[in-house]
């Protein structure tokens, strides 16, 4: 990233936009760059940018670099950053916002994580419940076919211990649920 992002209005407003999308009290703009989040993060070693750095990039309007960063996808939602942040910024919520923006704009480079989320969501939308076996097989076949052999003993283990259901369960009110989700999607788009 040798070139600075163009200093356009759209880029300048990036932080404001992310804060707004996250919720009225995300407090993202109040970041003092202390690094508590980056220090706390259990998966920081696998992140392209620490959360703090990501917020600095947001402030600088580096739209592309932020939305293509793997940082939000490596976030494990452990909330260490959230309880320690001296400015009480809702960092996990900001990460969720960045994920949804990256998905909406197709900005991410590695689709493993976002595909997993999308597969999960489609299960929920179809059945109302998550379905571990279906989720795992669909996901692993697509993204980690080579890992499957080493995973097999575990899968078989879980199956033999009756810890995986072979068939998904569907809730009765699936139509009601979808009506609610459809309306929610309209509201989200508005």
């Amino acid at each position: 990233m040798s070139h600075l992002a163009p200093q356009t209005e759209k880029n300048f407003k990036l932080m404001e936009q992310v804060a707004q999308k996250t919720g009225s009290d995300s407090k993202l703009e109040t970041c003092i760059q202390c690094g508590t989040c980056g220090g706390s993060c259990p998966s920081a070693m696998d992140m392209e940018h620490t959360p703090r750095k990501l917020f600095a990039l947001l402030r600088a309007g580096e739209r592309e670099e932020v939305l293509s960063s793997n940082t939000p996808w490596v976030c494990v939602s452990c909330y260490f950053c959230a309880v320690r942040c001296p400015q009480e910024i809702k960092i996990p919520d900001v990460m969720y916002t960045l994920k949804s923006m990256a998905v909406a704009e197709g900005a991410y480079r590695d689709s493993t994580a976002s595909d997993f989320s999308r597969t999960f969501v489609s299960m929920v939308e179809n059945y109302g419940r998550s379905y571990e076996l279906g989720l795992a097989t669909r996901h692993y076949l697509r993204h980690f076919p080579l890992r499957l052999p080493s995973m097999a003993p575990m899968g078989i283990g879980l199956l033999s211990k009756k810890r995986l259901n072979l068939k998904p369960k569907k809730i009765q009110g699936i139509k009601q649920l979808n009506a609610i989700l459809d309306r929610a999607k309209e509201l989200e788009a508005a």
């Binding site: 999308k21 969720y96 976002s114 989200e188």
Partner: peptide
């Protein structure tokens, strides 16, 4: 009852995740 969405739905769509 339905699935709570775990940590997945929130990263796709916020309002539907909340509504779920």
């Amino acid at each position: 009852w339905n699935c709570c969405g775990a940590t997945e739905y929130l990263g796709i769509n916020k309002i539907p995740a909340y509504a779920l």
